[in-house]
Design a protein around this nucleic acid. Sequence first.
DNA 1: CAATTTTTGGCAACCGGTTGACAAAATAGC
DNA 2: GCTATTTTGTCAACCGGTTGCCAAAAATTG
Lengths: 345, 345
Amino acid sequence: MTNSGTSTATTKRGRGEKSSATIYDIAKLAGVNPSTVSRALSKPGRVSAKTQKIIEDAAAELNYQVNPFARALPTGRTQTIGLIVADITNPTFFDIIRGAETTGSARDYTLVLAESAESPETEMTAARRLLSTVDGLILASPRMDDDHIRALAADKPVAVINREVQGVPCVVPDVNKGISEAVRSLAGHGHTKVAYVAGPKQSWMTSRRWDGVKSACEWSKLSSVRLESSKPTVDGGRQVARDVLESGATAVITYNDLLAIGLMQELQAGGMRVPDQISIVGFDDIFGADFTTPALTTVRSPLGECGNRAVTILLDMLQGHDGPRQAVTVETELVVRGSSGRLLS
Amino acid sequence: MTNSGTSTATTKRGRGEKSSATIYDIAKLAGVNPSTVSRALSKPGRVSAKTQKIIEDAAAELNYQVNPFARALPTGRTQTIGLIVADITNPTFFDIIRGAETTGSARDYTLVLAESAESPETEMTAARRLLSTVDGLILASPRMDDDHIRALAADKPVAVINREVQGVPCVVPDVNKGISEAVRSLAGHGHTKVAYVAGPKQSWMTSRRWDGVKSACEWSKLSSVRLESSKPTVDGGRQVARDVLESGATAVITYNDLLAIGLMQELQAGGMRVPDQISIVGFDDIFGADFTTPALTTVRSPLGECGNRAVTILLDMLQGHDGPRQAVTVETELVVRGSSGRLLS
DNA sequence: CAATTTTTGGCAACCGGTTGACAAAATAGC
DNA sequence: GCTATTTTGTCAACCGGTTGCCAAAAATTG
């Protein structure tokens, strides 16, 4: 039925767009059927070596590039992966994006980025929209609930970073290792009371980290207290400074680095000497964590590896392998800088 | 790639993929021809009001979502924009990305992100690859040469941020305004010699900023000297500290904030008091610029607006309007923080 | 009321690939 | 040399939309 091999090369194709070579052009140049060209380009081996060479040479001569839409239509595949992050300007996601992009590129996949702006509704909308054009989806610190995530995973392969969801492959930093190191370090410096400044209420990682802090303090026989913050930002850290002082804690572990930085700035502005009078430990080791004076001690999450592993899992699933049954964990580690140390008064 | 789509879901449509409604399903339910459905959905008005309603109701009942590949094939349109940045983890690009994404979303476009890793070759490869799937492309601080950029623009609409390219629409911060404010401020504080720490040699903006610094210093009768850095990073700033001291300058303007931050850290580690003994001014007001002690004085580029304007220009071009003949400029402004001030010794 | 014009929905070709089915050509086995 | 099997290229239907062309129906005009 389709007999477009008769239409001329340079006009009327791709209506209104600049024309470029198609498999029909290659077929004409190589003297074979377009289906043979398609097979040669997407299933080498199904075509003889001699024919394969003729077609490859013709494709090179015509500077042929496959039209991804035309290929996606019959196959449903687009060689793209979607990645949704909670906040595109939150540096926690930089290395996740970087790791995902690097691994995807290595396997000829393009990354499409979107953000949820911390809203479960916006996140779901973005996810549904992306799912129609990508092969698989990664959700980094997703805000929607587990059922919604599983519903998405029923459509196409989904991987989650920074949260465990039953039935969906996940990559999660093992926060307990880094927290244990942090608490051990603080105990060794003579601290006896640790405050934990929490993150967003709907964040799975907020309570995970609090659980880790509590457990580690119990182990090291330190007392611990949880303080709420209004938002996981520098400003949120500033706002919680009074609560921290009133808590009587001499060491603070925050939900993320931004809170730690804001807290440090506010305490220093009030005359507190860090770490002489209070030690501060952040989380994630984000970009800018070492800009402060003193530089921030923090629990580093290997976020690049999170991105890397999530993409690897996704692409394996796209190739027919089952996703891992249990969450893949990556290790955190304490990065000691100047903001934590021995109490001097 | 392996053919994992061997299992069928419910019917033989979308081979191997989960089926969903198409215009053929709507046509059957509404009792009209598929072409009528297509017209109703993409050209309301070309169909009678009565038929339009029947079709819209049927589409809603079937939870119909247009397949973007199928639509892209005959029209060449995908409702996506590509954005290539030089370094995805360089905070200069965060607000560009944010501004672009926000404006794109508002007009129903998806943003596809890629990076050039500061390499003209990688950038060209990414650009060629993106151009086959997006409607238009934005290059932020591109590293490829002008001819290559114009070649891309010959294929599809292209807009450039942070650089002027003849024949291609550009959005460029007017660095001279911010630089003039910075130099005026330094002159007012009694400084007489300003060092400029340059950025990447192939960066168009490097020399633009140097020209601005030179001119502003001449105007204010300050002497100026240009120092090279090995890379536009915190480490690059550290490495140039000795050169800065040897130059005898009492004020420094750097190519970007990262250089300023590294420089400040190294000078402070060597016992210099900022700003009492040397003033430091950065550029762009990136994320983390106010983490330092003292917080960094910097020339803010309205990067979000750059992203915003570039998308607006691109989408206007996609709707048939000509791009602006001259570069669109956005104003920079000096943000005075603690790292610049009066000399005290 | 008839002729003319406009509106509207259907037909089918097309976008650029993929792929099952088929038959011709090539190869292997007896 | 003949038969059976395998290899290989072609045919054409398909993926899910779009749209030029056409004719029937509806509306308008004289």
